[in-house]
Amino acid sequence: MNEPVMTDMRSEYSNALIKLGKENPNVVVLGADTTDSLKTSEFGKEFPDRFFNVGIAEANLVTTSAGLAVSGKIPFASTYAIFLPGRAVDQIRNNVAYPSPPGKKGLNVKFVVSHGGLSVGPDGGSHQQIEDIAIMRVIPNFRVFIPADTIAVSKLTSLMATEYGPFYMRMARSKTPLVHTDSQNFETGKGITLRDGSDCTIAACGITVRMALEAAETLQQDGISCRVLDMFSIKPIDNEILEKAARETGCIVTAEEHNIIGGMGSAVAESVSESYPVPIKRIGAQDMFGESARDEEIPLLLEKHGITSFNMVKQVKEIRSKKL
């Protein structure tokens, strides 16, 4: 594979917000003392009257957003992943997801967080959010995205502004390799087939998508045709693309930087077990916490949890023998 082009999700999110801010006066942005890091402060410079920094007060961040949303605003509330779903789940549930104006489901709040998963690195296990997908996808009315690259970030940010309802989108801290092209279309609930294959499928999201593509390349050299899906929309999950993969390739490996319990792998397993059960192997944090790793050591941290293209190749080879 070619050397990847690395780009920064937070910068792209910030650009997308400013563009939205110009198009739609109802777009407002909230932060909790992480606005320079998230780069949402750029929106604040452009639109000072529509930008609110509520301090280190995540519960307040969530509920204030709810109040703005019920009054017709489209709030984008952002901070680090570790501080939002875990800390303010009650407010997310009771103030954003549950309240449903007539004919609507939930309030129109968009949570976009950065620093998701193990790849946060040096800050250590206390800051590596590996439970957020489980928390967020269990809450009714929420839709949950993990974009793989900045093209996805940009397009999904615009999508969230136009689609009514509560969303949660988790970005990575470090620069990520581009895996999509500018012409790629993103739809809620629609996975993307990045590479076709007939012997097995790797379903990935976020930083594992590029790894999955590398694994497929390696597998091809061994004569194994591997399909790669970008399952950026974890909720709603694309049942159709998964059933098709199960039927046509007979086994699925999932990979994510999240606990294997309750994450994207679980969502895939739930879906496939109801449509066309085939063997599934979940790669991700093996129900244990992360730890500090300097930027150049992040691959080691991920490797400790088996989140590598090498392990994907290994798991694909193993699971093929279990095909029904």
Partner: peptide, 25 residues
Amino acid sequence: VEFCGGSLGTGLSYSVGIALAGKID
């Protein structure tokens, strides 16, 4: 009804949100 109450301690944040929206508009 303007607010889904029940989980205590959240109504004031919600009200601040509504008040801010009123100021913007």
